[in-house]
């Protein structure tokens, strides 16, 4: 869903770029009609939801970020104090750094594995059953994913450590060790999202004209050569889009970290930015401060979204 939403954003870019959709010209031909009363009735639930849970809170969020607010007494205006404090808060910067560390591990491994899987499926099979099975980890709550792997990677009884012991490699406290915890969480989420990402890339590959591969085969090109000279260049726009969409999702890592922190606790080594905001807001009740941090994160994600839209425009002209 995180990805679907982000894709929505990109499709919106198309819409906004072309306000004169096909329906507009057809509409003019028909008898002029005004459905305004019916239209507003149709829109009541959505407009109410939008105003109460998107518009109003967006304004409130900005206002809270300028206040000192502990949920009990009313917010007290403090100007830009929260932002000044953020800039000097080593914990905030550390959280950003940890998040970037996680994102790099997660995205690089996830994209590579997904690309490999998608390419193999594309050249070997159209099996729906296989795709469905690869999708399973994505359908499962992140909380469950975290639990499964905390158990599989348990230092004493975990299956993976049994394997390592059998191979004489010694055991690792994957979630407990500050050095291992973040890479472990990164790889766990790679496990959870690789199938989903692979299916998106696979869908992109299906749009590559098959005759390209046929003529390349006649010319004697091997599969590796075809992948480099046909699949990768043709997939580039889709690849770029999936990459940015995954990046936006990856920056919002929370569930796995929250469960790991509750269970085995590697402390600040896994305190990502979402978790930092969560702690500030709901453990220390620094609502104003947390809102300021959330706004900074929103800006980062906003920049990524703009990049995504630019990529989308580029990809459209490419595929035309």
């Amino acid at each position: 869903m995180r990805t679907m939403r982000a894709e929505g954003r990109s499709q919106v870019a198309e819409q906004v770029a072309e306000p004169s959709d096909a329906g507009a010209s057809r509409r003019r031909r028909a008898r002029p009609r005004d459905d305004r009363r019916a239209a507003w009735l149709f829109l009541i639930p959505v407009l109410a939801g939008f105003a109460i849970f998107y518009g109003y809170p967006a304004v409130r969020g900005f206002w809270y970020s300028l206040t000192d607010y502990n949920l009990l007494s009313p917010p007290a205006y403090v100007g830009a104090d929260n932002y000044a404090k953020l800039a000097q808060d080593p914990q905030f910067w550390h959280a950003l750094l940890v998040t970037v560390y996680y994102v790099v591990i997660n995205i690089v491994s996830q994209m590579l594995f997904a690309l490999l899987l998608a390419a193999l499926m594309h050249r070997l099979t159209r099996s729906v059953a296989l795709r469905a099975m690869l999708l399973l980890p994505w359908l499962v709550p992140n909380v469950t994913v975290a639990l499964l792997w905390i158990w599989l990677l348990d230092a004493d009884l975990g299956f993976v450590n049994h394997l390592l012991k059998a191979l004489d490699l010694g055991t690792v406290g994957f979630f407990a060790s500050p050095d291992w915890a973040m890479p472990t969480i990164g790889m766990v989420n790679t496990w959870a999202y690789t199938g989903y990402t692979a299916l998106l890339l696979y869908a992109g590959m299906l749009q590559i004209p098959p005759h390209l591969y046929e003529s390349a085969a006649i010319d004697g090109a091997g599969e590796v050569r075809m992948f480099r000279s046909i699949t990768l260049p043709m997939l580039r726009p889709v690849l770029a889009l999936v990459l940015v969409v995954s990046l936006i999702g990856s920056f919002q890592i929370f569930d796995t970290v929250a469960v790991a922190a509750a269970g085995r606790g590697a402390g600040s080594a896994i305190r990502v930015i979402y978790y930092f905001i969560y702690q500030q807001a709901f453990q220390y009740f620094h609502m104003g401060y947390a809102s300021a941090a959330a706004l900074v994160l929103a800006l980062v994600l906003g920049v990524l979204t703009v990049v995504q839209m630019l990529l989308l425009r580029a990809s459209r002209s490419d595929l035309a």
């Binding site: 809170p57 994600l301 906003g302």
Partner: peptide
Amino acid sequence: LMVPPIFTLLPNFVL
């Protein structure tokens, strides 16, 4: 669509 969930999460909780 451009508003990330975390930004509306805190005010929605207060509401």
